[in-house]
C-alpha cells in the first residue's frame, strides 16, 4: 500500500512536470519558430531608412519602430515616476513605520500588488475622465496617464524589494554607523542603501519587465494601433504588447501576421533577459550578505 502510493506519487510528479514544461515549450516554440523568419532588416524600420526614422524625419508605417519607441518612452517615464516613490516608500516602511501604521500601509500595498492590472488601468481612465472635466478638450488618454497608472502598478514590486533588502541587513552592519554618531538618515544613505544595491537593482529590473509586458493598463489609458512615434506626453502612442494583441485579432495579411510573431519574439526575449538579470542580481546580493 505504502509502496503503491510512493510509486503513484513519482509517476504523477513526473507526468505533471513533463506536461507543464511541454505546454510552455509548445507556446514558446510557436513564437520562436514563426517569429524567427520575421527578424529581417525591414522588421523595425520597414522601407524607411533607419537614420531618417531615428531622427524622426520620416514616419515608419510598415515597421515596429513606432511601437518600440512608444514602449521605450512609456517604460522610461514609468520608471522615472515609480523608482523615487518606490524607494521612499520602501525606506519608510522598513526603517520608520511601526505598529498599526505599518500594518495598515502594508495591507494597502498588498492589495495593490494583488489588484488586476485592468483595474489599475480603469483607475487611470477614471483619472483621465476627472481631468477631462477639469480641463475640457486638453486631456484624454495619453502617454502620461499610462505611465502614471503603470508606475502605480509596478510600485509594490519596488516597495517590496527595497523593504525586504533593508530589513535583512545584518545588525552588526546596521549599528556601525550610529555607533560612530551618524543619524538615521545618514546611516540609510551611506551604509544601508549601498549594502542593498544589488537587491534594489533586481527589484527595479523586475518592475521594468512588468511594465514592458503589461497590456491591460495601456489599452485603457492611451495605447492605440496607429499613432506613429509619440510626439508629446499628452499624445496617444503605440506599444509593443498592444501591437501584438491588436495583430492577433486584426491582421490583414500574412505579412502583418509575420510581423506580429516577430514582435512577440522580441518582447519575449526582452522579458527573459530582464528576468535573468534580476535573478542574477538578487543572488549576488544574498551572497554578499553572507559574512
Amino acid at each position: 500500500m505504502r509502496k503503491a502510493l510512493a510509486g503513484l506519487t513519482i509517476a504523477f510528479s513526473s507526468a505533471a512536470t513533463l506536461l507543464l514544461f511541454a505546454a510552455v515549450l509548445l507556446f514558446v516554440g510557436v513564437i520562436v519558430f514563426r517569429g524567427w523568419p520575421g527578424l529581417a532588416p525591414g522588421l523595425i524600420f520597414g522601407d524607411t531608412r533607419p537614420l531618417d526614422a531615428l531622427l524622426l524625419r520620416r514616419q515608419v508605417f510598415d515597421g515596429l519602430f513606432p511601437a518600440m519607441a512608444g514602449t521605450l518612452a512609456l517604460v522610461a517615464l514609468t520608471m522615472t515616476l515609480a523608482v523615487p516613490a518606490g524607494l521612499a516608500t520602501g525606506i519608510y516602511l522598513a526603517e520608520y513605520a511601526r505598529g498599526r501604521g505599518k500594518a495598515l500601509l502594508s495591507l494597502l500595498f498588498d492589495i495593490l500588488a494583488g489588484l488586476p492590472s485592468i483595474v489599475v488601468g480603469l483607475a487611470g481612465l477614471a483619472l483621465t475622465i476627472v481631468l477631462h472635466r477639469l480641463f475640457p478638450g486638453r486631456i484624454g488618454p495619453c502617454l502620461l496617464i499610462s505611465a502614471l497608472a503603470l508606475a502605480f502598478l509596478v510600485l509594490p514590486y519596488l516597495v517590496r524589494s527595497v523593504q525586504l533588502a533593508l530589513e535583512s541587513v545584518p545588525r552588526t552592519l546596521r549599528l556601525t554607523a550610529p555607533a560612530l554618531g551618524a543619524d538615521k538618515l545618514t546611516t540609510i544613505r551611506a551604509v544601508l542603501l549601498p549594502a542593498c544595491l544589488p537587491e534594489i537593482a533586481g527589484g527595479i529590473i523586475l518592475a521594468v519587465g512588468r511594465a514592458i509586458e503589461d497590456t491591460a493598463v495601456i489599452m485603457l489609458t492611451g495605447a492605440v494601433a496607429s499613432a506613429g512615434v509619440p510626439r508629446s506626453l499628452l499624445a496617444q502612442y503605440e506599444a509593443l504588447p498592444f501591437y501584438i494583441y491588436y495583430i492577433s485579432g486584426q491582421y490583414a495579411d500574412p505579412e502583418e501576421l509575420q510581423r506580429g510573431f516577430a514582435a512577440a519574439l522580441l518582447l519575449l526575449a526582452m522579458c527573459v533577459v530582464m528576468l535573468v538579470a534580476a535573478q542574477w542580481l538578487a543572488r549576488r546580493g544574498s551572497l554578499r550578505r553572507q559574512p
Binding site: 552588526t172 552592519l173 549599528l175 555607533a179 560612530l180 554618531g181 543619524d183 549601498p194 549594502a195 554578499r288
Partner: peptide, 21 residues
C-alpha cells in the same frame, strides 16, 4: 545630541564590522 554623545563615546563590537568600502 545623541550624535555628539556617540562621537565622544566610541564603541567596538563583538564581531569586526568594517563597512563595505
Amino acid at each position: 545630541p545623541v550624535s555628539t554623545l556617540r562621537r565622544r563615546v566610541g564603541m567596538v563590537f563583538q564581531t569586526p564590522n568594517p563597512l563595505p568600502m
